[in-house]
Design a protein around this nucleic acid. Structure first.
Lengths: 227, 227
DNA sequence: AAGTGGTCTAGACCACCCG
DNA sequence: GGGTGGTCTAGACCACTTT
């Protein structure tokens, strides 16, 4: 018997074979159900899956069309840094370099949607892979939305504690290439100006903005995704 | 009446509220269906959605558990470069800098799974935003899998032509930070060694490996994603 | 106004896999 | 062996949007 994955595969084949070229209207669910000899719900499952993948566009009343410019979507899985390191076959360790309460700089408060000068906790953590610098994490935490008691971040990496103790609702992440600042160069043992892959994240929780973090990766770091 | 999104929201709320802490076994579909007064299929739809999001882990016979380390997934939408530029409110243009047939270098053939020394078409395209260098695209095309006739790539950007004329099946993308090579520096008008955000992609089509491309972005470029 | 996709139901069968 | 999630069916109602 045909399952929804079979239907999906066949529809995909026809699209790729240009039987149904970009922009074309494809048959309605009922028609396809009849053709394949399955229930409409099964066709619906298949088409819903293709729509999520960006291959087709569905509109009520207007029907289903093959996407004109199929948007390619890649999925990035953001692991806890410890697991990222272990996954590369290297022993993991980290050092808490700094931990203090201070008014957050404007770029941070602005991105998080907090009032200027909000006091936040700044944590600087160096993550090590095989004893060598892997990522320098510079983080501003919003103490107002954190559950108590807070752990000792010299023992438990902030990175990991947040994942398990705070419910993160949404956020965004951006990658840039930046020259290593003097501070980064010193901490990571590279020449100032060395290109570093930098990831900047902001995260919102149920109670409001949780954290802003900048991850400066060691030279040569690759962030890989599949689509 | 409760829809599957309501069920999803409520389950998510309980997980976030730690009613069902990480690692906990949550009630079976039938139990939840009864509690919410909906059909099991509706609960299934909600839980399937949460499983796709990485919030829960489902195993037959073992039941459904709250994920221990919820993997955060971010989705990257890879637009055609022209639309990326226009989306930033800048006029788009491009220049074809080079176009020749040559044996592809080993790193390229290796990543695509082609024999060493396979002749491929090398295209170098500079994409401009508001008249200024935006991305330098260095691309190796596998002519064996391309539909004929091929257009004039000085008129139509390869980037765009591929999207609409070749069915891409799968691929991967990786981001790195690299110093601008002398060539890149010259073409993009920056000092050699300037950190550039580089995206490297390989793409497989129905007929085999299609293309390898390296996109070197102008300094300051951000690749943003949401989760 | 009508046809489309989105969703729900109640029932069913099955593969899987833990105990 | 039995309980779980995964899936399918046949029918139904509805919101939406294009014509």
């Amino acid at each position: 018997m045909l399952g929804w994955e079979d239907i999906r595969a066949e529809v995909l084949r026809r699209i790729r074979a240009r039987d149904w070229p970009p922009g074309a209207l494809i048959p309605g669910e009922e028609a396809l159900a009849e053709e394949f000899g399955v229930a409409r719900a099964t066709v619906n499952r298949a088409l819903t899956s293709l729509a999520e993948a960006g291959v087709i566009e569905r509109k009520k009343r207007a029907g289903t069309r093959v996407a004109e410019l199929p948007v390619r979507r890649a999925r990035l899985e953001i692991p806890v840094i410890r697991l990222d390191v272990l996954g590369r076959g290297l022993p993991y360790d980290f050092k808490l370099l700094a931990d203090r309460l201070a008014p957050a700089p404007v770029p941070v408060t602005a991105r998080l949607g907090l009032p200027e000068g909000t006091p936040m906790r700044k944590l600087e953590t160096l993550h090590l892979a095989g004893g060598r610098p892997f990522v320098l994490e510079t983080r501003w935490l919003n103490p107002a939305v954190l559950p108590v008691p807070l752990p000792d971040f010299a023992q438990v990496s902030v990175n990991e504690w947040l994942v398990t103790h705070v419910s993160l609702v949404s956020g965004d992440i951006a990658f840039t290439a930046e020259p290593a600042s003097p501070r980064e160069a010193e901490v990571m043992g590279v020449v100032p100006g060395t290109p570093l892959l930098v990831a900047e994240r902001t995260t919102q929780g149920t109670g409001g903005p949780v954290t802003w973090v900048r991850l400066a990766h060691a030279p040569g770091h690759r962030v890989a995704m599949t689509f």
